[in-house]
């Protein structure tokens, strides 16, 4: 495998690397990532998947992970999540809703190659890959695969 020489990076490569340093404003997904990455993130995820989320949402999430959810069902999951987000009384309720929301977006991309939000594919790529990274330590139930594949499909759409 060829290894790059730092000395030979050209201006375009340097600018691209420099751009990676930009944090940007805090995104909604960051609260979810923070919760998953915090101590007890794995247990938190297990609990919301077993208890906190409404049964219909849990069922749709399961279908999304199994790649059997239709686009309509993923839209339904997204709507549930958004509705719950607007009435969330606690931070935990808010973060639970965000989990469902991003699973719906990832499912639509990974399974159907569709963007079901007004967010651009370039933004979704980074959001989903960051979320997938946080899921790496928090679970082993296929969520990371779904979300990372969603991020990859978003990347393909960005390049198309």
């Amino acid at each position: 495998m060829e290894h790059p020489s730092i000395e030979t990076l050209d201006q375009t490569q340097l600018s691209r690397l420099m751009r990676l340093g930009i944090n940007g404003p805090r995104r909604p997904v960051d609260a979810l990532i923070q919760r998953l990455s915090a101590q007890g993130g794995k247990e938190w995820l297990a609990r919301i998947l077993q208890e906190d989320l409404p049964e219909r949402e849990r069922s749709l999430i399961k279908q999304a992970v199994e790649r059997s959810a239709t686009l309509d069902q993923l839209q339904e999951l997204k709507s549930f999540a958004k509705d719950r987000l607007t009435v969330a009384k606690t931070e935990n309720d808010r973060i639970c809703s965000l989990f469902s929301y991003f699973i719906s977006l990832a499912g639509a991309l990974a399974t159907h190659g569709q963007v079901i939000t007004s967010r651009g594919a370039d933004e979704l790529e980074l959001v989903l890959l960051d979320l997938a990274e946080a899921l790496a330590d928090a679970e082993s139930g296929g969520y990371q695969d779904l979300v990372s594949e969603g991020g990859m499909r978003a990347a393909e759409l960005t390049q198309a």
Binding site: L17, L129, A132, E133
Partner: peptide
Amino acid sequence: MNMKPSRAAVMTRTATKRFRDALR
């Protein structure tokens, strides 16, 4: 590297965080 492309992408994000922190 014998891995799924999505896995490679996620691994890159992990390393990117270290790079971003160092750069900032």
